[in-house]
Every structure is written in C-alpha cells, then in structure tokens.
C-alpha cells in the first residue's frame, strides 16, 4: 500500500467491510473504524459474511461430491480424503461423547471443516484480494471470517443454545435448574452455586469463540505486520516460516473448537443423580 504509514496500513487491514446506517440516516459502507462503531448492531460485515458463506458452501459442495459418489469397493482419492476427515471426527465423537444424538457427529464435521477452511483464508497473502476489491471500489476487505468476533460468536452462541436445549431436553427444566443451583456445594449454598455455575456456563461459549478469534486475529496481525514493516523483497523470510507454522495453528484451532463442542454437548447430555 503505497503512501500509507504502517499504522494506517495495519488499522486498515484489521477493519471489516461494514454496511450499515450512517449517522445522517443514509446507508452505506463504513469508511473508518469509528463510523463502523457508530453504526451499532444493525449493520453487517459484508466481507465476513461473504467469505464464511463462500467457505461454507465450498465445504458443502466438496463433501457432497464425495458423499454423492460414495463407492464401497472403488473409492476415489477425494472420497478417501473425505473419509479420512470423517473418520477422524467420528472417532473423536465416539471417544468424547457417550450420549446418543445423531446431530453431534455431522455438527462436529461441519465445525471442523468450516472453521478449517475459514482459517485457511489466512494463508492467502494479505493484500491479494483486498487490493483487487479496493480497485473495485470496496474500502475494506478482511478475508478471514474467524478474525471477526461476530463469526466466532455466531458459532459459539449457536452451540451455547444447543447446550441449553439439550440440557433441558435430557434433564428436564427441573434437572437443568437443579444442576445450576445445587452444584457443587449442595442446597445450603444456593446463591453461591448459582453464581459459580452460571459463570462456568457462560465462560464456555465465551472461551470457545475468543480462543478461536484471538488465535486467528493474532496470526493475521503478524502477517499484516510483516507486510507493513518489512520491505517486500525480504517479507518471505518472515512470512513463509510464519505461514508454515500457521498451518498447524489453523488446523489445531479448528480441532480444538470441534473437540470442545463435543465435550460441552456431552456434558449437556450427562444426567447427574
């Protein structure tokens, strides 16, 4: 980005393309972080939505291709690759989830592959697509949906809802409330229990989304920093090792998100006596 100072370059790269209502009542894309903040809740990060839908649809398409042509005797290479992932997910679910629920395994597969693909956008050089979209007139473009808290919270809150739903479904409202109120110290300490259990319950989706967001945001920021501060002909010295290391991070973060989802939903299914 010629002409911009490193600070401007960096803050430009960590801002989403937000569409919402300006303070004067007209609608459009926010040009600055301040404008985006003023738009409030009724606004949408177009880049996050686009890339998350893109990766999600890519996941559905790629896996549907393998599933639709699934052959028992002569699997294609792609089918074997998909089976590898499916078996990994299935093994994790079998190990960590003791209840009976047909949704858990496909849910885990979706989480793992979708988050992996969204994280994978991090490996696309930071300026390739943003520069192209800027030429097309869009002021900002963040390609990695998981560096947007909205995306990670969108998933973790959905899982939180599932946790509450299955908690109530499996234990009944009374059982669910009793778990909140009578653990871990018994009936005499009801307020303490309530506070402790509520905090630990709310901490679950919070840690789930912030862990993913933090890791991916930090990773993206390092790429942006390298691009902002290092001359272009030397960037590869730092960017390549970081990218290779980042391959581990994006896989690991996808795996951790999936694994914790399984564990949390497993806890929601467990009936205490």
């Amino acid at each position: 980005m010629s002409g911009a100072s490193p600070a401007e370059y960096i803050s430009h790269h960590i801002q989403n393309l937000t569409y919402g209502e300006y303070q004067d009542g007209t609608w459009g894309f926010a040009h600055t972080a301040q404008e985006a903040a003023q738009m409030g809740f009724v606004a949408i990060n177009v880049d996050t939505m686009f890339w998350s839908l893109f990766t999600g649809i890519l996941f559905c398409y790629l896996f549907r291709v393998a599933a639709a042509n699934a052959s028992i005797g002569k699997p294609s290479k792609w089918q074997l690759c998909v089976e590898l992932v499916v078996e990994m997910v299935w093994g994790s679910v079998k190990d960590a989830f003791t209840g009976k629920n047909a949704i858990i395994a496909p849910l885990s597969l979706t989480i793992f592959v979708w988050i992996f693909l969204m994280n994978l956008m991090d490996l696309v050089p930071v300026d390739f697509i943003p520069y192209a979209t800027q030429l097309a007139g869009l002021s900002h473009m963040k390609m990695v949906p998981t560096t947007d808290v909205n995306a990670t919270f969108g998933m973790s809150l959905s899982i939180f809802a599932l946790m509450i739903y299955y908690g109530i479904k499996m234990k009944g409202i009374g059982g669910f409330a009793a778990e909140l109120a009578f653990h871990p110290f018994g009936k005499a300490f009801l307020p303490v229990n309530l506070i402790l259990e509520s905090v630990s319950m709310i901490a679950k989706p919070l840690s789930l989304s912030l862990r993913l967001f933090g890791n991916m945001f930090a990773g993206e920021l390092v790429f942006v920093l390298i691009a902002a501060l290092v001359p272009f002909y030397l960037q590869f010295i730092l960017a390549v090792p970081w990218a290779i290391f980042h391959i581990l991070v994006i896989t690991l973060q996808a795996y951790i998100f999936m694994m914790l989802t399984i564990v949390y939903l497993g806890q929601a299914h467990e009936v205490h006596h």
Partner: peptide
C-alpha cells in the same frame, strides 16, 4: 463491533450443519 453478522453467521452455521446432517454424513 458486534452487529448483525452474528446472526448471519449463526443462521448460515445452522444451514451448513443441516446440509451436512442430511446430505453429507449419511452416505
């Protein structure tokens, strides 16, 4: 900024999970 993207994500997440549950996982 928290905004409607949150809901958009949750909805697309639900749709993808449903698709996976229905068309990817069983075969």
């Amino acid at each position: 900024n928290m905004n409607l993207t949150l809901l958009g994500q949750a909805i697309s997440f639900a749709i993808f999970v449903w698709f996976c549950l229905k068309y990817v996982w069983p075969p």
